[in-house]
Design a protein around this nucleic acid. Structure first.
Lengths: 351, 351
DNA sequence: TTGAGAATTGCAATCGATTGCGGATGCATC
DNA sequence: GATGCATCCGCAATCGATTGCAATTCTCAA
């Protein structure tokens, strides 16, 4: 393999100059820079990441930790992050953090988590860390802080760490208000169950926003109108089945905390012979790629942009070297996208 | 940060011994090993990846290149790969390779691809490379070969590189035979379009298997029964709409080249008022997590196991240092999973 | 022409491990 | 007690860059 020495010889300069020229630093004359670049190109020289890291302390690599991979939202965030990183010449190292939901064990006893925080992250392999929808325990947070590297949380509340997230409560309120504005008063909500609370705070935030809207509109809340599911299509389907089959409630609209659950709700309604939006309006959250296909009204939270944005914050922090340029939490934009799954409720048939 | 020097002092040995003890090598007495491990633990010592790589030439990091991220199959393979790697103490660096399908430009002019092959992969950051469903151009293959590192292709035909894949032709034949055995003779196929051929060879393999089965059963092939789509739910939906709306053909069964397209087919049939499997049997390929939900008969190709398996091959090659232990291509197992989307065709109504 | 100050460049130390080679030690055998 | 053979361990070179500091060259005004 060609090393910097060869390039230096060919260009007739020292290795120090080659290093500086290739790093795009100032204090290299334009003429020299051109010569070095030509030499490097001719030899097909590419810096050795290991040597560069060791000498400089920078790796040009960012770690991304995600709890889930097989869900559109997460992979889309990941995609945005990887694109943004690649565009800046950075690598992305992917860490998967199983959360075994339902388990009562503290995370510290989950070997995969221990391995990640005590071993992988301590190897000084990453310049920064992007934590997606992650809730960490104290000990884990300590490990992260020990890294002394930029960390950004996306979506999850990480104390002491700058976070980016959409305003879940406001989004939920907007979604519910959309239904209320259409004339609905019997509005159900499908959201997270307590097991999920462990890692995502959003379920309760979204439920709060839902209740905010009802209260503001003077609509009484009804516990039976709130069902929990696991954010998947199947989960949303099942929850909707339970909801529509319960004789004690008569929802005309459903606000699902994710598009996948909303899609499940649409499928369930159809299977029960109810038309959407005629018999049941459905609204979700995410901006799922299948939203258009299902005609789903939703609130787009631009996940790919979230990934990109998080990387930008991280890279800015790396480049500047300053500790915490961002305030505690920054809200990301969201947009109501009205399609065909919501409409005014059917007029009440009085019998 | 604690470095190896500190550990050596605390344990009362040389850094060489610490290195050997922690690497689990022989030629360290059990007593010393224990002492070193205790010292390392007490100090919270973790090797510096950069220093270790530079000195040893090994990075404990594997690059994974995938063309798509927002598809269940790919993320599931990725999940399997990352788990297997983590279990062996390896990192996974994720590279996303856009293929801008439909573009006529050679890959070499795609800046993202150039960047990957000429820059990222040459940095000596990875010990091995896992290429998922990738077809490379000559120049790109040369770059990969220059790496002189283990490479395994998963699903795509990579000349000169050991590959793992399911036997697409056999799978397609099995799927079609399943329909034939149920009594179907009017069997449609939804597969890839030529644009996709660029990167995945499977579409034509699967179509070949489909035709093999028809020919073997003495059923004439009918071009109008073959439709192309982009492997997504929406694509499968649309293709099925076209298929069922065409008065020139009357399929009683559809074999879709992916579960997502099969799901789209089911949804399309429903929207047209046809029952599945009563009016239309549907079978897919993949083993998608939603298969159970939709009652989809499919051929499971165990994608998570594929990712795991590919990593095992790669790691074995790394550890052994031998060049190409695997033969050119190894077939991975698949299983027919019969659910409720396939049945015998309705008896023909003669009028 | 000269000197000050700025712009370039090179020297050499440094980053933190790994590992070939040789020396020391331990044990068994004669 | 000497010899032979393993086993265990340490010395020091090495991996391939980066970068502080000092030296050199250049620029321009006086």
């Amino acid at each position: 393999m060609t090393k910097i020495q060869k390039v230096a010889e060919l260009a007739g300069v020292s290795t120090a100059t080659v290093s500086r020229a290739l790093a795009g630093k100032t204090s290299v004359s334009p003429a020299t820079r051109v010569r070095v670049e030509a030499a490097a190109k001719q030899l097909g020289y590419v810096v050795s990441a290991a040597a560069s890291s060791l000498a400089s302390g920078r790796t040009r690599n960012v770690g991304v930790v995600t709890p889930i991979l097989t869900s559109w939202f997460y992979t889309t965030v990941l995609k945005g992050a990887q694109r943004a990183l690649a565009d800046s010449g950075y690598d992305l190292t992917l860490y998967l953090l199983d959360t075994n939901p339902g388990s009562d064990l503290p995370h510290a006893s989950n070997p995969r988590r221990r391995q990640l925080f005590e071993d992988f992250l301590q190897r000084k392999r990453v310049d920064a860390l992007l934590a997606i929808s992650l809730e960490l325990e104290q000990e884990e947070l300590d490990h992260v802080r020990r890294l002394d590297k930029p960390v950004v949380g996306l979506g999850g509340p990480l104390p002491g760490v700058p976070t980016l997230s959409v305003d879940d409560r406001a989004i939920a309120r907007l979604a519910t208000d959309h239904l209320i504005a259409l004339g609905h008063t019997q509005i159900a909500h499908i959201g997270g169950n307590p097991d999920f609370e462990l890692d995502f705070h959003l379920p309760s935030n979204r439920r709060d926003g839902y209740e905010d809207a009802l209260v503001a509109a003077g609509i009484p809340t009804e516990p039976l109108m709130v069902r929990s599911a696991d954010f998947t299509i199947a989960g949303g389907y099942d929850a909707t089945l339970q909801l529509l089959g319960d004789p004690r409630v008569h929802p005309t609209a459903v606000f699902a905390a994710s598009d996948e659950m909303a899609i499940g709700a649409i499928l369930a309604a159809r299977d029960l012979g109810k038309s959407v939006p005629g018999d049941l309006s459905v609204i979700g959250i995410d901006g799922h790629e299948l939203g258009g296909f299902f005609g789903l009204t939703t609130i787009d939270q631009h996940p790919e942009a979230q990934g990109r944005r998080a990387v930008e914050v991280l890279l800015a922090e790396i480049e500047s070297g300053s500790p915490t340029p961002e305030p505690d939490n920054t809200y990301l934009p969201h947009d109501l996208v009205v399609r065909k799954s919501t409409s005014a409720p059917a007029p009440v048939v009085s019998d």
